[in-house]
Design a protein around this nucleic acid. Structure first.
Length: 485
RNA sequence: GGGUUGGUAGCUCAAUGGUAGAGCAGUGCCCUUUUAAGGCAUUGGUUGUGGGUUCGAGUCCCACCCAACCCA
């Protein structure tokens, strides 16, 4: 019993913690001023500099009287050389109690080892935090997907590639904001809790406000509030934040996801398409340094290349269908179903004829489209709230941007006729007046300028730019079923 | 919701129905420029959970839990 306890990895670390305390040192130390982070020192390395840095110990090479350790954080890794002769004896005495995983603060001088490694020769060190649990395998890192998602911090600490994906995501979001702000768009904040969840067709999460005695919903889209701001006189606005949809979880769906919506008064969907084209190219060049985005498989071989070079194709929906089958629109609805049968496309779940066409579009156009493609002039049944084209009332003035086989961004010439908007919303809500956002319609009746609007699924954009195959790989803490105790 | 695959030491992974193993991490010893450091020795297991079949189950069967992938 006692032997078992003695050998337990967690117990050993707790014993070391106690030994550190016994030496009069706090194993969970306080503030430590650093001159630079480990990665910064390494990137801008200069010999003979006095530096103070700190980080988690991610490797320890013990040479007896001298030690090499790696200190790491989000910025990268820096090697520290500790020589028993050059460090105060009382500090070196507790070094035996230091483990991989502990946070250490180090003061010393930069130098290059004889193997050419930029390093810090430590003059002193301080334990900043004792780690009471071991880290994952130093070479393979965390492989178990469950651990990667449930304990993301272990993934970040042990898998450099994961850290880089999330840093890229952070940069992408930052550069989108910078791009829009440089063009005069301003970021606004609208309610995430809404009494009537509008702006999209999706199941909302429900919650309750006690003081008001009011049921509220987490927003499925910010659209109706952003349009109220157009009514109020804002002309170039965006919101980049979370939406919530109470629907299935998959490789491409997380219940909460990040969406950019932007509205531009006096513009239309064509102008919005150009804006998105310029924005995505700016972000790709700034964050990825290229417009040729390479996706790699598990072995690191390039298995997909996405070419973002402008101009991007803009093709009407019907033309794309005709590229698949020139006679599609000459067939009867039954003939179209027969065609699907012959081409092994299951449309048994499709009720309406336009749904059959849309399913063919998804399978044979969308999923096969890697380079950017603006699908324009979509059938009005697909986008019931959009403005009908002046030239052809069977289609609407919208685009759907497809990249990487996924719908990444829709863009609209927004409907600003309050009477038509009311009819459409009433029709959509199917007579359930509770679902009708009358305040929004009153706002439209006061007058909303014609405007272009876009939405961009940020998670999918990040997937496209980083080569992630699952949305869970670009969301720090994806939702999973709770593990049983 | 349906199907497929998987869950073994802290981590990464092995194991024809027949004594549960390796590498890393850990522990002990050696080593003053290593970098997946090295050398010698060594600890560590309720094989996801619960049943069943069997002389014998990590392995076969059933149910359940969790995850990944595919389909709807």
């Amino acid at each position: 019993m006692e032997d078992h306890t003695h050998n337990d990895l967690l117990a050993i670390r707790r014993q070391k913690r106690d030994a550190i305390r016994a030496a009069g040192i706090d194993p969970f130390g306080s503030a430590f001023d650093i001159t630079d982070s480990p990665g910064e020192i390494r990137v801008a390395f200069a010999e003979g500099q006095a530096v103070r840095t700190a980080g988690r110990i991610t490797a320890h090479r013990n040479m007896g009287k001298s030690h090499f350790i790696d200190l790491s954080d989000h910025s990268g890794r820096m090697q520290v050389y500790l020589n028993a002769k050059e460090i105060p004896a009382e500090q070196m005495a507790v070094f035996d109690q230091v483990d991989i995983g502990d946070f250490l603060g180090v003061e010393g001088t930069t130098f290059i080892t004889k193997t050419g490694e930029p390093s810090i020769k430590a003059a002193s060190f301080r334990i900043l935090a004792k780690s009471l649990r071991p880290l994952p395998d130093k070479w393979h890192g965390v492989q178990d997907t469950e651990i990667k998602y449930r304990q993301r911090y272990l993934d970040l600490v042990s898998n450099r590639g994961s850290m880089e994906v999330f840093q890229k995501r952070i940069s992408i979001v930052r550069e989108i904001r910078r791009f829009l702000e440089d063009r005069g768009f301003i970021e606004v904040e609208t309610p995430m809790m809404q009494a009537i969840p509008g702006g999209a067709a999706a199941q909302p999460f429900q919650t309750h406000h006690n003081a008001l005695g009011l049921d509220l919903y987490l927003r499925i889209a910010p659209e109706l509030y952003l349009k109220r701001l157009l009514v109020g006189g804002f002309t170039k606005i965006f919101e980049l934040n979370r939406n919530f949809r109470n629907e299935g979880i998959s490789r491409r769906h997380n219940p909460e996801f990040t969406m950019l919506e932007a509205y531009w008064a006096y513009a239309d969907f064509e102008k919005m398409a150009t804006l998105v084209e310029e924005m995505v190219c700016y972000v790709a060049e700034t964050v990825c340094g290229t417009l040729r985005i390479e996706h790699k498989d598990a072995e690191g071989n390039v298995n997909k290349v996405i070419d973002l070079t402008r101009p991007w194709r803009r093709v009407p929906y019907a033309n794309l269908i005709r590229e698949v089958d020139p006679d599609w629109y000459d067939r009867t609805p039954e003939g179209r179903r027969q065609w699907c049968l012959e081409h092994k496309i299951d449309v048994s779940h499709c009720v309406e004829d336009f749904e059959v066409t849309q399913h063919v579009f998804e399978k044979l156009v969308e999923e096969k489209t890697m380079d950017p493609l603006f699908v324009t002039h979509c059938p009005k049944e697909l986008v019931p709230l959009a403005k009908q084209s002046a030239s052809d009332p069977s289609v609407v003035d919208v685009y759907e941007l497809v990249i990487n086989g996924q719908e990444i961004s829709p863009g609209y010439s927004e409907l600003n006729d309050p009477v038509v908007q009311r009819e459409r919303l009433e029709h959509q809500s199917g007579g359930e007046t509770q679902k009708l956002d009358d305040d929004f319609l009153v706002a439209l009746e006061h007058g909303m300028p014609p405007a272009g609007g876009i939405g961009i699924g940020i998670d999918r954009l990040v997937m496209m730019l980083t080569g992630a195959e699952s949305i869970r790989d670009v969301i720090l803490f994806p939702h999973l079923r709770p593990r049983q105790a």
